[in-house]
Nucleic acid binder design. Structure first.
Lengths: 209, 209
DNA sequence: GTCTATAAGGTGATAGAC
DNA sequence: GTCTATCACCTTATAGAC
């Protein structure tokens, strides 16, 4: 389902956005971290960019167009952050994906990234393009987990469960924990969920005897 | 932890808000459903109220104050919607709570309620009062589930698991499914999570032999 | 309590010079 | 590509009449 995924962390030859556009998208990201989605404006983006509003409008015809492009930018980062070698044994692969999605420690940069994602997610009911992207993200996550579980069943590591159903469960739990982390002060919750997920994987997936 | 909870659906004697305030809060709710948090304005609320902006400012000194009051209003509704007799046996009590939080069918009214909650939740990183309320909501949910699980352990229905940890897991899963529902087009996901949660409860909680 | 009128400033967006 | 200047409009909030 995802053949052409490369780690785009480094700014390699990437034709998706021009240099000017990427500078604007990066400025948008900073403006969003600082001011939040609901008080984001072209002026604030331009300030962050170090140029004037008119410069922004040279690259984007409207705020709406910029925001959809920004959403792609953020989703792209999320996806490439997730892209990883999948050669490890299924049980450690599963644990690695979970660790990546719900790390025990979350540095400021990733924390801000999750806040931005949550703020964008809150726009899904009002904007179809937004809803499409988050549908895509969740399907990607479920697909990754499902593939690992299926591989585990084939190799005999896991019991013969319904992979799709288990994947939905794990992704829902992971998403719940992620959103809890950025929207409450319940610092201990992510760790509790991590432990509980391991236990779940153990009792529902891992073969006994 | 929650002795004084009554179903406040009907407008009984409730000293928390004056009649005028409640009218404004209800108008705010309608305006929010229609326009979304990020384009919510006093004008739109006044329009929905059928009065002028100045009338709103007679009851609230600032938009900020109104919004925090509105948050209380919404959280209150959420809590009273959850308040329920807890006399059923633990296993059905648990299933009922889950059914209530992640119903298989979601009518428009409740759907809008969850959208509003998600939009308010997206403000948590920018506003401490908001974060406090959502911390409270999640702790309430975890508390409800934990109590049921503990009761199940005492009565011998459930195995002797770590109730707090299992509660965190269930609440995270439920929250993930709830947010998935309002922010993606993955219509089948909530049902899949429901099935998977039942299976989880069965294998992790329910006593065998 | 609700109104009209108004203030001061921010918003998205465009025209035209360089 | 970036700038200045400008537009019409919307924003939060207040003053004062009724």
């Amino acid at each position: 389902m995802n053949d052409n995924e490369y780690p785009m962390n480094t700014d390699s030859i990437d034709e998706k956005w021009s240099d000017g556009e990427r500078e604007i998208l990066r400025a948008t990201y900073r403006a969003m971290v600082e001011h939040g989605y609901s008080s984001l404006s072209i002026s604030k983006i331009a300030d962050e960019l170090g140029k004037t509003k008119a410069s922004v409008y040279y690259h984007y015809d409207s705020k709406e167009e910029l925001l959809v492009s920004f959403l792609d930018f953020v989703v792209d980062r999320f996806k490439s952050d997730l892209a990883e070698e999948r050669t490890e044994p299924p049980d450690t692969a599963l644990e690695n994906v979970i660790e990546r999605l719900v790390p025990l420690e979350l540095d400021d940069e990733r924390f801000h990234g999750q806040v931005v994602l949550l703020e964008l997610r809150s726009q899904t009911s009002r904007n179809e393009a937004f809803r499409d992207r988050f549908t895509e993200i969740n399907e990607l996550l479920v697909g990754i987990v499902r593939d690992i579980v299926e591989r585990g069943i084939e190799t005999g590591t896991f019991r013969d469960v319904e992979a799709a159903r288990v994947a939905e469960h794990i992704v829902a739990t992971v998403n719940g924990a992620r959103i809890d982390r950025v929207s409450t002060d319940r610092g201990a919750a992510p760790a509790a969920v991590r432990v509980s997920l391991s236990s779940y994987i153990d009792s529902e997936l891992r073969k006994r005897e």
